[in-house]
Every structure is written in C-alpha cells, then in structure tokens.
C-alpha cells in the first residue's frame, strides 16, 4: 500500500459477455499524477473508469481509494465516492435545471434532504457557484440560465464545474475531448490538467493518441489488459501501432 496513492487497482477483473471486459488490470495513481488512458474502442477504458469511480464492483481484484479498501456497504461507499469526480463524455447535465442547480448537484452527496429540496426551490450557495464559474472563465450571470440554453463549450465547463463543486481528490474523465473541435478540446484539456495537480490526481481516457503532451504517464489498454504503463516520454509510435493494431486509423 502506497500512502501517497489516490487510486490503487490490483488484479482487477470484470466479467463480460463472452470474454472479460477487464482482465488483471493493475494501476496506481499518486497525488499530482495526470495519467492518459489510451486504447481502441472496446478496450475496456469506460469499464476501467466505471470501476475507478465505484459504479461497477470488480469481480476479482482489489481497489483502494486513498488507501481505503472499496467499501461493501452502500452508505460507506458513497462517502468514499464523494471525493471522486467524473467528467462524462455526454456530460450528463440535468437539462431541466439551472446552471447553479447543476453546479450544486455536485454537493448532493454532502447535503441532506432539506438542502437538496431547498436547492430546487431557491438555488443555494450562490457565492461558491459564482466563484466556480469564474475559475472556469465563465460569466457568473449565467447562474440563473437553464443549462439547455448554453453553448456547447459553456456546457462542458458547467459539467466540469459540477465536478469541482465536489472538491474531489480523484478526477476521472471519459473521452471528454471526443466530440469537441480542436480549439475547445485544447482549452478543456488545459483546464483539466490544471485542476489535476497535487494533491489531486487525474485519469483521462482518450481514443486517439494525440494531445498527450501535458500528461505525466500514459497507460495503454487493449482487450481488457494493460499493454504498457509508461512516462509520456517513453511512448513511441511502435507501441501505439501495436496498441491500435487491427483498427482503421
């Protein structure tokens, strides 16, 4: 056990239909580490992230968050999950609610029923929410807007804002750049890399092996197995070609 590790996976195995979705995956993220997860579609990247944020219980292997074993009891596990923020590719914003209410959805795990209900009547913690927006280069005047009225780039940032409101130790992102134009993708990646500094850690999955520059490490995943786990400088075209073998470029 590594005291500085934010996330530790050892021999993780997740069954699938036919062949396993993850097979003996081990991975360690220490505070301040920003790791890119690479692999062709179907490699198991999303499954790995779902294991990392606690949605999927692995069939075998051990999982530790900040040195703590994944709790079996739902209540205890929810307490662990509070500090894990996930940025989803489809954002998963609540379209019917305002920006502020969406940001506050990141606090739900900390709030009891009274505050959660009150937030639906009179959105709470305006100052903290405004600060979050400013940090993401958004105008605090947006707080009252329904998220459905925002532009694509603004929505990305609000989703990131919800995650930051969680005050997470571990940032996970599932192909967040896939559907963005290059400029937006660059901006978002810069924000994510900045937020992923110590004491946090960042694990971000990418479909294509570009934009790797800001990361500390790269993990290659193929058919549910880790192919390589190397510092970003050690990744060479040959490794990548082997990782993506069989998939049209």
């Amino acid at each position: 056990m590594d005291p500085a590790a934010v996330l530790e996976l050892e021999g993780i195995h997740v069954r699938g239909r036919g062949q396993p979705r993850l097979e003996g995956v081990s991975l360690r993220l220490r505070a301040g580490e920003r790791v890119a997860l690479l692999g062709p579609s179907g490699a198991g990247k999303s499954t790995l992230l779902a294991v990392a944020n606690g949605l999927i219980a692995p069939d075998r292997g051990s999982l530790r968050w900040q040195g703590q074993e994944r709790a079996r009891r739902p209540r205890a596990r929810r307490r662990q999950q509070r500090r894990i923020g996930t940025l989803w590719q489809d954002l998963r914003l609540i379209e019917e609610l305002s920006v502020q209410q969406n940001l506050n959805a990141g606090r739900l795990a900390h709030w009891g029923w009274p505050r959660a209900l009150l937030n639906l009547l009179l959105p709470l913690e305006s100052d903290a929410c405004a600060a979050t927006l400013r940090r993401l280069d958004l105008d605090p005047a947006l707080l009252d807007q329904p998220v459905s009225a925002l532009s694509g780039g603004q929505r990305q940032r609000v989703a990131l804002g919800r995650l930051l409101r969680q005050e997470p130790m571990l940032l996970l992102a599932d192909e967040p750049l896939a559907s963005l134009d290059p400029r937006l993708a660059g901006e978002l990646l810069a924000l994510l890399l900045a937020e992923g500094r110590a004491p946090r850690a960042l694990l971000l999955s990418l479909h294509r092996p570009d934009l790797l520059a800001g990361f500390d490490r790269v993990v290659g995943l193929r058919t549910g197995r880790v192919q390589f786990d190397l510092p970003v400088g050690a990744v060479n075209p040959g490794l990548l070609a082997a990782l993506y073998a069989g998939e049209a470029p």
């Binding site: 019917e96 609610l97 305002s98 502020q100 209410q101 209900l117 639906l120 009547l121 009179l122 959105p123 709470l124 305006s126 929410c129 405004a130 605090p140 005047a141 947006l142 707080l143 009252d144 807007q145 329904p146």
Partner: peptide
Amino acid sequence: AGVARADGGRPPGSRIAVAAPL
C-alpha cells in the same frame, strides 16, 4: 416556468421557482 431566467442585473439565485423534479 421551470427555472428563473436571468434578466438584467438581478443577483443570481434570488428568485424562488419550483424546479422540474419538484
């Protein structure tokens, strides 16, 4: 309507509105 809309210089979150889930 579901959410209060920002109009003018109104401070954010100052209007009571019943949001969709409720």
